[in-house]
Amino acid sequence: MISSYTFGIYPRSEELIEATRKNTENLDSLFRTETEEYISVQKNANLGFISDPLLKWDDIFRPFSNLKSVNLSSLNRIYEMNTFYRILSFDGLELTDSGNVVQSHLDSSLPKNKTVAIPEPFTFTELHTSKQFKEKEDFIINLAKMLRIEIDSLVESGFEVIQLLAPSIAYNKEVDFGIVSDALKIITNGLKAKTILHTYFGDVSKKIESLLDLPVSGLGLDITTTPASSIQKHSFSDKSLTVGIINSFNTAIEKPQECINLVDEINAQTKPKESYVSNNFDLEYIPKEFAMNKISILGEIARGVKDV
């Protein structure tokens, strides 16, 4: 058995979708009930870490619009998806705020073994804008400082694993890993929690060596875009490896035994320091009933994979 978790934004039920559109009186209680439901399904699946389904979040960046220096800007497509996010315009020179922006948008009833996912600095700089920081290097470093304050607050409140979402590192053909590394150092240096960098929305086969050099505890790889055969060529002896085995972009339900065999094979070749299984990216790309089913399947896969 290995550890497991799901991360990102989870799908709202049809009832909740309607309630958010019509702003119905029972909206808050629906948010509460569905959050509890998602926490329960994760617990029942025996996932190693439990996450808030983030049902109130409009996109993975939106809580950061509450930073004093940020203004909401136009809608933009999130890479090749048929889903859009709001561009944040970081207009102030001082990006750091109270350090409570993410924390205040999380459910307080999560159990002790909890995890949370927030975008890493490179993805922020690629998908958002700044009026003050014209040079990408300045922007990313200042974003990292802001994120560190947020993450410190999360760690203090008991989050043991911080997932860093890195779609831009996967999608962009050109990535300056020197800058990425400098920014991540600000986030992880002396941090009393594990950090796992999740890449998705692109094949990272040719970037794995560079990713392995980054100052994070582990890497999460989406095996629907990065073939297992590419991952298996590398040693993960100094890093944890999360195999993003649950496909959040297809309703087809994974066959547990096939997944167990695949993860066993990857682990046998890569010999990771620690092994996890997870979804490949936000479950909100599939409707709720499929997401619930896939969370249970993830637990089954984790139980079946051999210890490393």
């Binding site: 799908p11 979708i17 409009d58 996109d59 809608l75 048929n82 709001r86 599939i286 409707p287």
Partner: peptide
């Protein structure tokens, strides 16, 4: 039809299998 998925914010569209 599988259900609705988000386009942005509270805007959703029906998606089929």
């Amino acid at each position: 039809f599988a259900g609705r998925v988000r386009s942005w914010d509270n805007k959703y569209y029906k998606k089929a299998r």
